[in-house]
Amino acid sequence: MNRRTALLGAASALAAIAALAGAAAAQDDDFPQKPITLIVPSAPGGSTDVTARKTAELMGEHLGVTIVVENRPGGGTLIGSRHVAQSDPDGYTLLAQSSAVSMFPFTFRDPGVSLDDLRPIGVMLRQANVFSVGQASEFTSMADLIAHSEAHPEDLTFGTGGPASPISYTVEMFKHASGANLSPVQYKGAGDTFPDVIAGRVTMVSSGYSGQSGFYEQGQLRPLAVSGPERIASLPDVPTLREVGVPLDVSVWLGIFAVAGTPDPVVAKLSGALQYALEDEARRAEIIEQGGDPAFLAPEEFEALLAREAETFRELADVTGIEPQ
């Protein structure tokens, strides 16, 4: 082979690469061309599942393709999350996740998937946590509860949906920030705690507004504080934790992730679809009615939120000495 043909070969190889790149770019422009799969790493019927299905419907409408919601539960959301992390970074496999994903490094010894494997698209829903007690409870304010706990540190309990659940972390953060002491009583999910909290066997529960709201009207649950940065429209009389002197604001979010390395144009399109879903009037009204915040977050804003949260969890893990499994 002489020099000339070698050069030619190199040139044609370069041309081929350029053509491929062009084709890839064109493909990104054409995204999406086939149905998208949104993996829900928990069982059907849970809050992630319900939110994902509603959002996927609207996003699909905007993108002109079907978004298929697929449940892959198990391993404390690890199985579904790993599945997405190992998929092609083409935007056709997405993950619906909660702050559980930020906690992986602290809850699992060998999670096999982390935020670095995922590319944040945005949040489907942000929701304040509501701290509530049962109808017969002696506590009518968060200050009462904290004061009681200081006098009788062994007395109070809180219901949680499992030792490594986001709820459990929220209450641990609350304990750390308020100085109150409550022992965790473990259930299989936040909803299972309600009978014992309502009947007064367990002191307090902290969970998303939408799960609790059905119990407010007849007074089975009494909300004492919300954990968000400001009061929520549906509970105008309930103060935030900051207002009652507990320096903490955490909100629960449910977000959508693509695989790390997904091209920017694809991310932009998915983010646009998410914005469309959040700006849908009916959906927006529904989110607000359920005590949620429908504000749209651009991928970069979501990324910043995740970074702040990771920092909080790292501090908490240091303070509480939570051991990964």
Partner: peptide, 10 residues
């Protein structure tokens, strides 16, 4: 819930 109805005692 998907239908926008909040389950609960009410």
């Amino acid at each position: 819930i998907i239908q926008g109805i909040t389950p609960g005692p009410t």
